[in-house]
């Protein structure tokens, strides 16, 4: 007992001793500092990488003398994210982007303490005077891809390799299925979920199972799709529609098109707003009208989509963008 109390004392006394000097001083040199918190790695070929590249592009355009960025990655849990958000705020960052729905609570908490800093998070809807929320309308491009896939499939079977049946994944999948139904209700969509976000091997096996059940065009979301795309590229005559970023470099001979979020324009919008004195208070939608969602076709496979089908696709796209075609969200 004594021993333990003693050791506690030693630890407590040791603490400040170990922590000699240091501490970041806030600087006001007119440089815009952007802090980004990512749930997975900045090289995940999907959600996190998209945002990382978006912020990088904005900072590069502004020049190193005017803007700087810092990244905290692989923060799946909101406890560490809370510390990261407050760190950036304490260090005098001007814009802090917490790139995940799970960061909502810590973000709101810190934002209340730093009214002069702009905070942003998404996919989300909660805003305040210094909080932006952003909300990619994943279902829009998904609808169009579903529509296109239903026209292109030879086997009349399509597959969705899902992570967890919620969030952006379910929005995307729901849109895809609606698109298929609009084009050809007799085409079957196989839909299944691995139950995790990052298990590549499992996603790969799931894609194999779909292909096994004669699916010849597959799609899916989250960082685990790297595995599913591998399975697709192993099989001739099987193709993939991608989400989050342009994933065609992963499998140039298999990816027909990608729905890519243009995070650069979103970040640019927030930077401009921040500089103009508007620190938040808006839900920023990523959709086809504002071109923050882009449907990028893989030039390698351009021959796969006949010109007349492509023309129809473009007119569908205009209808979805204008709202003439309503894509429903999951209830």
């Amino acid at each position: 007992m004594k021993k333990l109390l003693f050791s506690l004392l030693v630890l407590v006394l040791l603490a400040p001793g170990l922590a000699f000097a240091g501490g970041a001083a806030e600087v006001d040199d007119g440089v815009l500092r952007i802090g980004v918190i990512l749930p997975s790695g900045r090289d995940d070929m999907s959600w996190s990488q998209g945002m990382y590249e978006g912020v990088s592009a904005v900072v590069a355009n502004m020049g190193a003398g005017n803007a700087q960025m810092a990244v905290t990655e692989n923060v799946p849990n909101p406890v560490d994210a809370g510390a990261a958000i407050r760190d950036y705020a304490n260090q005098g960052f001007n814009i802090i982007i917490a790139h995940g729905s799970q960061y909502q609570n810590p973000l709101m908490e810190v934002a209340a303490d730093f009214p002069e800093v702009t905070f942003a998070h998404g996919t989300a809807f909660e805003t305040s005077s210094n909080i932006f929320a952003y909300d990619p309308q994943a279902q829009l491009g998904a609808y169009l891809f579903g529509w296109l896939a239903a026209q292109m499939t030879n086997s009349q079977v399509l597959g969705i390799v899902g992570p967890v049946r919620a969030g952006d994944a379910i929005k995307y999948n729901y849109g895809f299925i609606q698109g298929v139904e609009a084009a050809n209700p007799s085409v079957r969509v196989l839909e299944s979920y691995t139950g995790s976000f990052g298990d590549n091997i499992q996603a790969k096996e799931m894609a194999e199972a779909h292909i096994n059940a004669r699916a010849d065009i597959l799609t899916g979301t989250a960082q685990q799709v790297v595995g599913a795309i591998q399975a697709v590229s192993e099989n001739d005559g099987v193709y993939w529609f991608a989400n989050d970023t342009d994933q065609s470099p992963l499998a140039p001979n298999s990816i027909i098109a990608s729905q890519a979020y243009s995070w650069e324009t979103v970040v640019q919008y927030m930077v401009d707003s921040h500089m103009a004195g508007k620190l938040g208070g808006e839900i920023i939608s990523l959709d086809l009208t504002n071109e923050r969602i882009q449907l990028v076709f893989n030039p390698v496979l351009a021959d796969l989509v006949p010109a007349d089908l492509m023309a129809q696709f473009e007119s569908k796209k205009a209808d979805v963008a204008s709202g003439a075609i309503q894509v429903r969200l999951p209830e």
Partner: peptide, 16 residues
């Protein structure tokens, strides 16, 4: 899990 797959890739925490 990597080179034993027909199409090989390494990603973080691949063993899952």
């Amino acid at each position: 899990l990597t080179i034993g797959q027909h199409e090989a890739a390494f990603v973080n925490n691949i063993a899952a």
